[in-house]
Design a protein around this nucleic acid. Structure first.
Lengths: 150, 150
DNA sequence: GATTTTTTGTAGCAATTGCTACGAAACTAC
DNA sequence: GTAGTTTCGTAGCAATTGCTACAAAAAATC
């Protein structure tokens, strides 16, 4: 009786593995835009997220951002530090609770966002156009997947 | 006449930005599983991808993998180096073209995959169950998005 | 009101990642 | 066959990331 050396591995293909597919899709859709941000404006993705949140929500704390924007607080802290160093945002202590740090866009930051946001919008529009009706489906799937922050 | 200091920034929300949503979705679906791989088996994601490809396609070169698995060749090289060091794969020069390095699972690697693959399959099944019919939609969207490797 | 606990943000270190340069082998062209 | 070009894989460095520990302020507990 011979010992089978080729054990029966399950037939598993990365192409059917949703986490993998999502990772590739995320990378592909982010890459072009993030390279542009980096090369033309010197902005990283975490920094961009912070800026977007400030442009959208005005004056907020680090805590507000990490709870809203799927970033760890140390990422927000780091991004905010760099953004302050280059003069795009201002940090100041909150009056009532001095643990909190209020972040706001500076005029320079606002000007930058006036340039960046339309680019992002155009990118999104191009993506939607490219996907056609598949976009609605993708969105529906993502909505379900992301619905529980649990 | 007063100068308006609040310039009219476009109203843009990360929650409607597909690259962002995909990134969050990818992270969420990968996290639990990749932590398990790391803690219980000491395997990183790039290493796991290489292993899966070897389990699926048998003997292949570094080049084969990076073209198939959305990894840069240096990532594959690094992963392969570590996998060899821990005895999960074997590397040997190709007879006909000595630039090529053939990668194969060792028995130990095969045994590991016999354990890992069912876990991944269960993870995928759970994801599909959780999403219900939204899974089909997500898949349709991803298929369209990923169709052109361009 | 002093002590413990929780919350907020930062800093430092280790590990991972991305990029570029490089060497070796194979291929092309003369 | 020799010189230039391309392909394959690796190595080294810089930058980024993830994690944990920490200090300062506030809140809760006694």
């Amino acid at each position: 009786m011979t010992k089978r050396t080729d054990s029966p591995l399950p037939d598993f293909d990365l192409d059917g593995f949703t986490p993998y597919r999502l990772t590739v899709a995320a990378k592909r859709t982010s890459e072009e835009l993030s390279r542009k941000y980096r090369n033309q404006f010197g902005i990283s993705i975490p920094e961009w997220r912070v800026l977007v949140h400030l442009a959208h929500s005005g004056n907020v704390s680090v805590r507000d951002i990490d709870s809203r924007v799927a970033m760890e607080k140390y990422e927000v802290s780091r991004a905010a530090k760099r953004l302050q160093e280059v003069g795009l945002i201002a940090k100041q202590a909150n009056e009532h609770d001095r643990r909190l740090v209020s972040l706001t866009l500076t005029d320079k930051g606002r000007d930058l966002m006036a340039e960046l946001l339309p680019i992002a919008q155009a990118h999104q529009a191009a993506l939607e156009a490219q996907l056609g009706e598949a976009f609605q489906q993708l969105e529906a799937g993502l909505a379900k997947l992301l619905e529980d922050p649990e």
